[in-house]
Write a protein that binds this DNA or RNA. Sequence first.
RNA 1: GGUUUCGUGGCCGAGUGGCUAGGCAGCGGUCUGCAAAACCGUCCACAGCGGUUCGACUCCGCUCGAAACCUCCA
Length: 510
Amino acid sequence: MDNQLYIHNTLSRRKEPFEPINAPFAGMYVCGPTVYGDPHLGHARPAITFDLVFRYLQHLGYKVRYIRNITDVGHLVADLDEGEDKIAVKARVEQVEPMEIAQYYADRYFVYMDALNVKRPSIEPRASGHIIEQILMVKQILDAGYAYIVNGSVYFDVEKYSKTYNYGQLSGRVLEDLMANTRSLEGQDEKQHPADFALWKKAQPEHIMRWPSPWSDGFPGWHLECSAMSTKYLGEYFDIHGGGMDLLFPHHESEIAQCQAAIGHESVKYWLHNNMVTINGQKMGKSLGNFITLDEFFTGTHASLVQAYSPMTIRFFILQAHYRSTLDFSNEALQAAEKGLKKLLAGYETLGRLDPSPPTPTPLTGGEERLYPSPPTPLPGGEGRIATIQRECYQAMNDDFNSPMVMANLFESVRIINSAADKKDTLSSQDLELLKQIFNTFLFDILGLKDEKVNDQHELLDGLMKLVLAIRQKSRETKDWGTSDQIRDTLQKLHISVKDGKEGSSWNID
RNA sequence: GGUUUCGUGGCCGAGUGGCUAGGCAGCGGUCUGCAAAACCGUCCACAGCGGUUCGACUCCGCUCGAAACCUCCA
């Protein structure tokens, strides 16, 4: 069995064996949110994707330091006033401190990511808290000769850089093409070359967010924070850098250039990029205004939503697609996710109630008349069948985190569990143990899904329900269907479903 | 225009050179006081046209269509 984890490296555009630089330690940096708006479905995708990576690496025994930044300095806005800070714009509109806005939305982000059962990263550094490190890196790049100063701003010299290094190695871009296709605002621009980008930007008088530097009172450039903070916390060469595909160019390309220029060598071994969530075939994003916030999903308060969808439904929905594929939003797809998740969780509950079958002779299969007793042959599959599922789950995860394949295997497990519950299949105590282990490992620990209805009152509720169902059972035995149905209907109104089976009634919170 | 990628059944989505992905929905059964759930069976597929091959949905080429990036965006 191949235990090697393979991950798709955007740099090489192929799957490569994951070999940490400094095992058993592994370092991972992921581009986090710019906190100037409520988190939407698009934010959930990278958070959950790299949560999956984080969880699996930990499961494999790596000691992972996972860094996800909070961008609270803001980026330049091109379509508004030149050189203005995104967060500053919003702050003026709402008449509050810019950092207050950042704090508010950062808090919101944490709350919604917690709801999605996304584990908190090891460190969540803020750009505003690392101005010194960023200034230091600008100096390093200046010293190395790959930047120039104009009117208090510092720009990265892409043209010079590309004479020695390959600017475009990540995105497959060619500098000449970038030249030919960047056509706007060249006259008033301070840049020597259209492809150059800011490392430090002098603040305009109305610009609120600003810090002193050797060059001007200003703010760091678009791409610098990630280079500075990843280097600070993970070192000059680390394992994984992740983010959305939309960040590939120019953000990540520029990060590579910055680190190369400042440090003198590559800084990232594996680049991972998650694909976009689409809506009607288009990217769901801030700029298009077609995003649906997580809050709107959880409460069902958005014109496009026919109902509310729970955090775990959203998580399931995202994990049922491979992270490098686009994922199309629709109510139908989310409802399918909701039902699928429910089925998996119900399967796990059923598993907990199953008694191991004694080693019985082969049950009557086929129904043909038998002239003599059949020998006690092992059942089809037997214990190897469960072990195969477990192995395939690992193979799926090892194949670039193929969560949809893991889910398919879990559904196969549910089918087996339900068959056993229906007495159409038998499972040994070892089978049951292994199944429990598979669910705990893959469904709960690695995929990070959980049963949302479990709460502190569970024991009390359980006791009450046993009582209620015992009373109902009595009424059923006397064929008092009126009482029996009254109990069931009333419980249903409280969102508790009662199901009558051969072995008595069971209940479930919807 | 350039770069990157994609086009799978009613919907969402895996995957592979020859063997059922899976979920949801549909249909037919079993079970059941009724219901729900579950189980069994079943329908619907690989954009189009060429090429390579004993054989392609899977490789190659072209055509058509779509997306992301080239400006802040997860």
